[in-house]
Design a protein around this nucleic acid. Structure first.
Lengths: 200, 200
DNA sequence: GTTGAAACCGACTCATCGGTCTGCTACGTT
DNA sequence: AACGTAGCAGACCGATGAGTCGGTTTCAAC
């Protein structure tokens, strides 16, 4: 491994460990010392790759959290049958036994709740992802209406926001109860709702 | 004002200021020094009334946050027409212009997201309230079915959880966007959903 | 008036935080 | 082989956190 590859590996290791720590403790409560310890690197290494904790947080968001969410939703947001695609996505998520997402909360939503009121950089980043998610979902529902899979009387924008809210909310409730059943029950409720939107 | 009354007043002042600070910054990020400054009291006074920060947090939850939520939902949880009662409650909440609840998030949910993974005391307290909320809402929906205002095919428990999730989720999204319209649009989505549950 | 305890004050401690700085090491370049 | 720099190590720094503790005030009881 040459120097550049090694440097990249160190950076990636920091990002991954930081992502875990932020997901677990939140951004403010996670400590750089803990990240250093768990990554097996030094303070010098961390501050060589990132100018400060905030920039590290932004990098974790941009390079770890955001791509993960976008990758997960890609099929739904690009297809013409959003209801079926979403139901399928949810089934897949529910099949992840022992997944941190189910009891540790959505990293996006965790960060949003914690940081958006106190840091504009985080707020804008999170807002950008949520807006893109909402817009894509709205468009997918409109395409579904055009394709005849979604009822015409559905308000696509409103329904998109409502769907997002119920997903994040279900994750939040599951996180508190530390019970994946709460999440799955919430998602089944969402699937019931989606069925009501389906054109007959 | 005698000694006892004055002591109670001090305690209440601490609780109210702490509730504001926790709501705004979260439990971990809010500082006792700031609470002391804003309450106009001394460190000695704070630690005379509360053994430590955690106990202060528990007291804020038990004596400020929880009663507020329960009081708000009382009509819905005790009536026989939950759908209409909820719609009315939401209309009332939406009419609160400039309310912290809309852009600062639900205090309950904020605390749940932040503290439930790392402190069992908070988790159990929050869980108790959420469980009570879910149970009461489920029972209200069942009474609604008995009274003929809610469709028979609705799964009450599942619907109750879904409603709670969408409310908390909508508040979360609104908090991030710092836009009350996001909250109201989410709530209108919920009202649309509730209409679908209504017996015709 | 004396006393005793509750209420309160605020300087202090100590741990930990994010962040800096000096210097070493190892590799790519010439 | 010599040199320069990217990558990294870790001791150190000031700020701030929660929490302590000896002292003072106030008031009710006797």
């Amino acid at each position: 491994m040459n120097t550049e590859q090694h440097s990249d590996a160190t950076r990636q290791k920091i990002l991954n460990v930081a992502a875990d720590e932020i997901h677990l403790h939140g951004f403010q409560a996670c400590s750089t010392s803990e990240i250093i310890k768990k990554a097996g690197i030094s303070k010098g290494a961390l501050y060589h790759h990132f100018t400060n904790k905030l920039e590290l947080g932004y990098a974790v968001f941009d390079e770890v959290f955001a791509p993960k969410l976008i990758g997960l939703w890609k099929p739904v947001l690009e297809g013409n049958n959003p209801i079926q695609d979403m139901s399928q996505l949810f089934q897949e998520i529910l099949s992840w036994t022992d997944c941190k997402m189910l009891t540790k909360g959505c990293p996006l939503n965790n960060l949003a709740q914690e940081m958006s009121p106190i840091d504009e950089g985080f707020r804008l980043r999170i807002g950008k992802i949520f807006d893109a998610w909402e817009l894509s979902l709205t468009k997918a529902l409109i395409r579904g209406q055009a394709a005849g899979t979604v009822k015409q009387e559905v308000n696509p924008k409103r329904a998109a926001l409502f769907i997002m809210a119920s997903i994040e909310g279900a994750q939040g409730l599951a996180k508190n109860s530390q019970d994946t059943k709460v999440f799955s029950e919430g998602i089944y409720g969402l699937i019931d709702y989606l069925k009501m939107l389906e054109a007959t």
